[in-house]
Design a protein around this nucleic acid. Sequence first.
DNA 1: CACTGTTCGTTGACAGTGCAACCAATCTGC
DNA 2: GCAGATTGGTTGCACTGTCAACGAACAGTG
Lengths: 163, 163
Amino acid sequence: MSVSVAANDSRVLLRLEEFLPYRLVILSARTSNAVARIYAERFQLTIPQWRIIATLGQYPVCTGRDIALHGMMHKSTVSRAVAALVKRGLLRKEPNAYDMREEHLRLTDEGRAIYEAVVPQARAFEEEITAAFDPAERKEFIRLIEKLDAHTRKLAPDHDPDA
Amino acid sequence: MSVSVAANDSRVLLRLEEFLPYRLVILSARTSNAVARIYAERFQLTIPQWRIIATLGQYPVCTGRDIALHGMMHKSTVSRAVAALVKRGLLRKEPNAYDMREEHLRLTDEGRAIYEAVVPQARAFEEEITAAFDPAERKEFIRLIEKLDAHTRKLAPDHDPDA
DNA sequence: CACTGTTCGTTGACAGTGCAACCAATCTGC
DNA sequence: GCAGATTGGTTGCACTGTCAACGAACAGTG
């Protein structure tokens, strides 16, 4: 801030660097960019694509709707990302005979291989960043994050349009 | 996840809901969306636009470059947001006689009025979310966030292209 | 059976963003 | 002073995400 000569002396002043929502954004952007590099560079996956693979790695069969809810994504985002993954052969769509509106999604072997290649690296990265903490701090941080998460979820329910 | 019948039984498994980077993204998205509503609905400001106003509220005179660094934004993002704000009369550009490449930016009275209208609401919102904590927890949370922030900054330096 | 309302998924239009190329002003070394 | 490198800022382009509208498949009602 080379140019600024003095801070605002008004009573109304917000220090952005100390504003919690801003801090969270910065922190999450940095970590999430770093994680994205893991699967973006080596496997050419976008963030929504990775989230879909991650969800299907965890729950082998889902509908698009399930994935959208689980990954906080818009259904159109999911739709396009799924299309791209199917085209690349990482995902398969299977019609659901009991409800022809929805389609069951499942990883192909190739898709699962990517999942299994990325997961250990993601885990390692998580280790790396939480190495900032000693064990007690780490546990406490998780606890506080959970508490904050639950609280904000009540305050600002994730806007669910119809998704 | 109505359809999934069983969790993956492979040794390679990542629980997305417990993956720290993912949690941070979700948490920060929710809080930052809630904050955005404050200035988006009433004042039609985008996030970069608000960050610029917030920076100039704190440091009355800056260059675009200063703002980009301070707010973790790309210089093109700043350039466009500044243009929009100037057009709306919330910001003024002033040539710097000592270096004609850069332009000094300053809030107009109208711009400052918006800043002063938003800040108390932003503060109030911060209060609201940290109400999840008792005073000791709040202090500890800030401390841990700072520690994590410092650590990740070393690990994954904010990609600075030339900005 | 229609008739209405809802849900899953796709698609077109649109806005915001990042990247890269670019211009103009400045600085550096010769 | 001049050539080349550097820096602040703008802009064209491609890419994504969001929103709104839509078609198709269900579910409930009379």
